[in-house]
């Protein structure tokens, strides 16, 4: 294959990754934005989403689409409810102290991951996509008759991958609409700006926190259900999305949905493209170093606001 088709292929893979990453990272960003809490167990809620997708789609018979739609509804609900429970049982009791929260969510990470290992097992399990037609993509080249179309071998994508991109965009617009245009969004912003004042105006801030923590986890689970048919469901799959979400959220500016989405596209695309041409490990090294240096030299972006 020529360089051109190769680059386009890498960009499509990158776009799929970016779409899923944006959803996951917005969940993390939402939690930090409203609650000022870093959820280290975020990747595990993502993993739960994929595992539930496998479980639902295998227990619901019939066409794969039935199971997929059921998973799309159930997985975020279950993951969200679980996260809200964790908030209620643990985070609230340490009073959302930043360091205790991180230690507690590291604990949660192990608990969720290892419980999945005990019940679901160590295997990676495939999930059948609801539809998966192959689309061959054309390319042009100079032939005997000047420019001509042809379909290079292996150059193409699938309808499901395009669906993932579109679905993620729609969901992100939905999140933005809820945050910016509804009463719920207003309550969230009020709790973020000044929890005490929000309380004085009759907002049940504790409930808002549980809801936000649940919603963040639900977004991660939703992203995982979307990606599960392309990857597989595995109990250790939460690590990479967690790391990448961190990277995205920090570079994009924590709490800002728009910034997070832009950074997700940037990181997802460049990760896809760099990984295709260089080593994926090198791409990750560059990305993690970038985060460290952004935090050191541009702290005002995110954490700086709270501490300074």
């Amino acid at each position: 294959m020529d360089f051109g088709p190769y680059l386009i292929l890498a960009s499509i893979e990158g776009a799929v990754q970016a779409a899923v990453l944006a959803l996951t990272a917005v969940g993390l960003s939402l939690v930090f934005g409203v609650m000022r809490v870093v959820n280290v167990a975020h990747g595990e809620f993502y993993m739960i989403g994929a595992v539930l997708a496998w479980w639902v789609s295998t227990s619901v018979g019939g066409h794969p689409a039935v199971g997929f739609i059921a998973a799309l509804v159930l997985a975020p609900l279950v993951a969200g409810a679980l996260a809200a429970l964790c908030d209620f049982l643990i985070l609230r009791r340490v009073d959302y102290d930043p360091e205790s929260t991180i230690v507690a969510t590291i604990g949660l990470l192990y608990i969720i991951q290892q419980t999945t290992l005990m019940t679901y097992g160590p295997d990676a399990r495939p999930i059948e996509p609801p539809f998966n037609e192959r689309i061959a993509l054309p390319w042009v080249q100079y032939g005997e008759n000047g420019l001509e179309w042809y379909y290079p071998w292996g150059f193409g994508t699938t309808t499901y991958k395009l669906f993932v991109i579109v679905a993620a965009i729609l969901l992100l617009v939905g999140v933005w609409a809820v945050l910016a245009r509804t009463r719920i969004g207003m309550i969230l912003r009020a709790s973020q700006l000044d929890p005490d004042m929000a309380r004085a105006f009759g907002v049940n801030v504790d409930r808002v926190y549980a809801l936000v923590f649940g919603a963040g986890a639900a977004l991660a689970a939703l992203a995982a259900v979307l990606i599960a048919p392309i990857q597989q469901a595995h109990y250790l799959m939460g690590g990479d999305p967690l790391l990448l979400s961190f990277i995205v959220v920090i570079i994009g500016g924590l709490g800002s949905v728009a910034g997070t989405v832009v950074a997700a596209v940037l990181i997802g695309m460049s990760d896809g493209v760099i990984s295709m041409f260089f080593s994926p490990t090198l791409a990750k090294i560059i990305a993690t170093m970038l985060v460290a240096f952004v935090l050191i030299f541009r702290p005002q972006g995110i954490f700086g606001k709270r501490v300074a």
Partner: peptide, 16 residues
């Protein structure tokens, strides 16, 4: 095999 579960539980219980 899931011995790290103990580590997780310990972390949560200690913070609480």
């Amino acid at each position: 095999d899931a011995y790290l579960l103990v580590a997780g539980l310990a972390l949560v219980l200690l913070t609480l």
